[in-house]
Design a protein around this nucleic acid. Structure first.
Length: 574
RNA sequence: GGCCCCGUAGCUCAGAGGAUAGAGCAACCGCCUCCUAAGCGGUAGGUCAUAGGUUCGACUCCUAUCGGGGCCGCCA
C-alpha cells in the first residue's frame, strides 16, 4: 500500500468523472498531476498540484478547477477536509483511520512493507567494484562496493530482477606486472635477495602469494626466463588476487552473482562479433585522431588506428578500438562485455565507476546505445573521492599496503555496518569525508548511531512489553500530534523507495531513516511530559498493546531500510 | 582548449518544476524521582555563486560567466 499512490488514484478518478460531466474538457493528460507530502505539515497530510497543471490546457482558472475538485474530493471516505490554498494547491487532511490502517499494515506486512511492483521484473545488471585484480581493495573501491550493493538491493526491493556483477580486468598488461611482482616474491620465498623496481607492485600482500606459489611448484621456475613462467603465474596470481578481493568484499557482506572475466572474452570471437556489429552499422573506420588540445603531450604524433564512431551516439570524439600495432585497446573488450550483457537480455544496465573514470562515460553510453540500437539504457554512476580523517586530521597511511588505505583497514576500524551507512550518507556524486572517530562516536552527530538507537529503543520497550504477556494487537491508538507525525513518516516509506529506486539514489534511504528516527525520538521524549504517550503501561495490557503498535511499525521500517543499505539493526546499544 | 561533477545558513549537507528553501553541528535558553537524557524542545542564523531565458510557478530545466575538483591518443 502506497497511500500517496492511492490518493492519486482517487484524484485521477475524480478528474475522469469531471470530464464525463463536462466540468473539464476531454483530452487532458494527468501525467503531471502529483500527490506529495506538503512542505509544511500544517497545510495538511497531502497536497496535489492538479488544479495548477490543468489550468492552462483546460482553459480554466486554477482556483475554479481547485474549488470544483475540492467539492468532489470532500465526499471521499478517506478524506476529512480539503482546502484550496495559494495559487491553487489542494491540501488534503485524511481521516484518522487512514493512519491507524497504515500502522496496522506496516506491522502486518513486516519485511514486505514498502516492496513495490514498480520494477515489474525488469532485468537490471548492476556492475560495480570491478577493481583490477592486482591487490586489495582500497577506500575508493569501498565506496563503490557499498553504493553498488545498496543500489542493487534497493532495486530488488522495488521489484526489479537484479544481477550483481564484477568485471575482472585480467587481460591487460597490469596482470603481467602482477605476475612479475609475484615472481619476485616467489624468488624471495626461495631465499633470494630481490629488488622491486618501478613498474612492479611492492605491496606486502604478495609475500603470501609468492610462498603459495613455491608450495605449489617448488623450485620449477627458479632461474627460468619469463616465457617459461609468465602465463602460469599470471593465472595463479590473478586467482590469488580475486580470492583476496572476494575476502575483502566478504568483510562488507557484498556477494556478487557473477564474476565476469575479461580474459574469457578472448578467443571466443565475442570481441570480433561486437565490433562486427558496429561495423555493419557503419560505425567502424580507419582514421587519425586530432591531438588533444591544451595539453600538447611531447610524444604525440598522428597515427592511423581503427576507430569507433562514438560521436554518432553522443560522444565528443571518436575512440580507438585498436592500437597502431593492431592489438585491441582496452575499450574493445569493454565493448564486447557490454555486448554480452545486452545479449544476456538485460533490460537496463548500470555501471558504477570511480570518479577518475568520468571520461569514460560518454563512450560507454555510445557503445551501448549503438549495440542495442538505443533499446537498452545504460546509467553510469560515478562515485566521488573519499577523504579520510582521524581526529580531524587527514589520514593516509596504511600499514598493510604502504601507500593507500585498504577496505580492510576501514572495516576493521569501524565495522561493516558503520562503513556502509556512513558511505551512504552522501550522494554518490558528492565527495565524502569519512572520519574514523565520528563514525564510531555514539551521539546524535553520528547518523548511524542515531538510527540504530531508535531501533534499539523500540526493541527495549518490546522486551518490556513481552513480560506483560499482552495481546499483540496491531490496532494502534494515535491521538497526539507526535504520534501522527511518526505515522505520516511511515506512510512515506513506499513512496520513498520508488523515488530512490527510480533515481538510482540509495542515499535517500539513509536520509529517510534519519528523519524517521528523529520523529520517533521526538515522540519518545513526549512521554516525559505526557505519561499517557508512553508505550509501556504497567498493569494495563490493553493500552500497552494499542500504544506499542506504532513503535513496532517504526522498527519494521527501520529494519527494512537498513536491510537495503546492508546494515544490521541492533537490538540494544552497548 | 574540450568534457564530467560540484557551488544552498559560520561549518557539514538534504531538497520528483510547487506554497514562507530544510536538518545536523557550532552559539544561546530550557527539559531526567518517569519505557535508554547516547535523547528532546525552543531562539538565532539565507541575494540557493552571478546574469539572462523557458514556465502560471525555478534551488530544481536551458544558455553564458565566475569559483572548486576530476578526466582528456596506443596506460588500465
Amino acid at each position: 500500500m502506497n497511500i500517496f499512490a492511492d490518493i492519486r488514484t482517487t484524484i485521477i478518478e475524480t478528474l475522469d468523472a469531471m470530464v464525463a460531466d463536462g466540468a473539464l474538457p476531454a483530452n487532458l493528460s494527468w501525467g503531471n498531476v502529483t500527490v506529495e507530502p506538503p512542505r509544511d505539515a500544517a497545510h495538511g497530510d497531502m497536497a496535489t498540484n492538479a488544479a495548477m497543471v490543468l489550468a492552462k490546457p483546460a482553459g480554466q482558472p486554477p482556483r475554479a478547477i481547485a474549488d470544483a475538485l475540492a467539492d468532489r474530493l470532500a465526499t471521499e471516505a478517506m478524506i476529512e477536509t480539503v482546502n484550496v490554498a495559494g495559487p491553487g494547491f489542494l491540501n488534503l487532511r485524511l481521516v484518522p483511520d487512514v493512519w491507524h490502517d497504515v500502522v496496522a499494515e506496516v506491522v502486518d506486512a513486516g519485511a514486505r512493507f514498502g516492496h513495490s511492483g514498480m520494477g515489474a521484473g525488469v532485468k537490471v545488471n548492476v556492475e560495480y567494484v570491478s577493481a583490477n585484480p592486482t591487490g586489495p581493495l582500497h577506500v575508493g573501491h569501498t565506496r563503490g562496493a557499498v553504493f553498488g550493493d545498496a543500489l542493487a538491493s534497493l532495486l530488488a526491493f522495488a521489484g526489479y530482477d537484479v544481477t550483481r556483477e564484477y568485471y575482472i580486468n585480467d587481460g591487460g598488461a597490469q596482470v603481467d606486472v602482477l605476475a612479475r611482482s609475484v615472481y619476485l616474491r616467489y624468488l624471495e620465498a626461495h631465499g633470494q635477495e630481490v629488488a622491486f623496481e618501478d613498474g612492479t607492485y611492492p605491496g606486502d600482500y604478495l609475500i603470501a602469494v609468492g610462498e603459495a606459489l613455491k608450495a605449489k611448484v617448488g623450485d620449477a621456475y627458479v632461474g627460468q626466463n619469463e616465457e617459461a613462467w609468465l602465463p602460469d603465474i599470471r593465472a595463479f596470481a590473478t586467482e590469488a588476487m580475486m580470492d583476496l578481493i572476494r575476502g575483502d568484499l566478504g568483510l562488507l557482506g557484498v556477494k556478487m552473482d557473477h564474476f565476469y572475466s575479461e580474459k574469457s572474452l578472448y578467443g571466443t570471437g565475442l570481441i570480433e562479433e561486437a565490433i562486427d556489429d558496429l561495423d555493419k552499422k557503419g560505425l567502424i573506420y580507419r582514421g587519425t585522431l586530432e591531438p588533444p588540445k591544451g595539453k600538447a603531450p611531447e610524444d604525440w604524433e598522428p597515427r592511423e588506428q581503427v576507430l569507433f564512431r562514438s560521436t554518432a551516439h553522443g560522444d565528443d570524439v571518436d575512440r580507438p578500438i585498436k592500437k597502431s600495432d593492431g592489438s585491441w585497446t582496452y575499450f574493445a573488450p569493454d565493448i564486447a562485455y557490454h555486448w554480452d550483457k545486452i545479449k544476456r537480455e538485460f533490460d537496463e544496465l548500470i555501471d558504477i565507476f570511480g570518479a577518475d573514470h568520468g571520461g569514460y562515460v560518454k563512450r560507454m553510453n555510445a557503445a551501448v546505445s549503438a549495440l542495442s540500437d538505443g533499446r537498452v539504457p545504460l546509467d553510469v554512476k560515478l562515485t566521488q573521492l573519499v577523504k579520510l580523517y582521524k581526529n580531524g586530521e587527514p589520514f593516509k597511511m596504511s600499514k598493510r599496503a604502504g601507500t593507500f588505505v585498504t577496505l580492510r583497514d576501514v572495516v576493521e576500524q569501524v565495522g561493516s555496518d558503520v562503513t556502509r551507512f556512513v558511505m551512504l550518507t552522501r550522494k554518490n556524486d558528492a565527495p565524502l569525508d569519512f572520519d574514523f572517530d565520528k563514525a564510531i562516536e555514539q551521539s546524535k552527530d553520528n547518523p548511524v548511531f542515531y538510527v540504530q538507537y531508535a531501533h534499539a529503543r523500540v526493541r527495549s520497550v518490546m522486551r518490556k512489553a513481552e513480560e506483560m504477556h499482552l495481546d499483540w494487537s496491531d490496532n494502534a491508538k494515535l491521538e497526539d500530534e507526535a504520534e501522527l507525525a511518526v505515522a505520516r513518516k511511515l506512510a512515506e516509506w513506499p513512496r520513498l523507495v520508488e523515488i530512490a529506486a527510480r533515481n538510482h539514489e540509495p542515499h535517500r534511504v539513509a536520509f529517510y531513516l534519519y528523519e524517521l528516527a528523529s520523529e520517533f525520538h521526538a515522540l519518545w521524549n513526549r512521554g516525559n511530559d505526557k505519561p499517557e504517550l508512553r508505550f509501556v503501561h504497567e498493569g494495563n495490557p490493553q493500552l500497552t498493546a494499542a500504544k506499542i503498535a506504532l513503535p513496532r511499525a517504526v522498527a519494521v521500517v527501520i529494519s527494512n531500510g537498513l536491510g537495503i543499505l546492508g546494515v544490521t539493526p541492533v537490538e540494544e546499544m552497548r
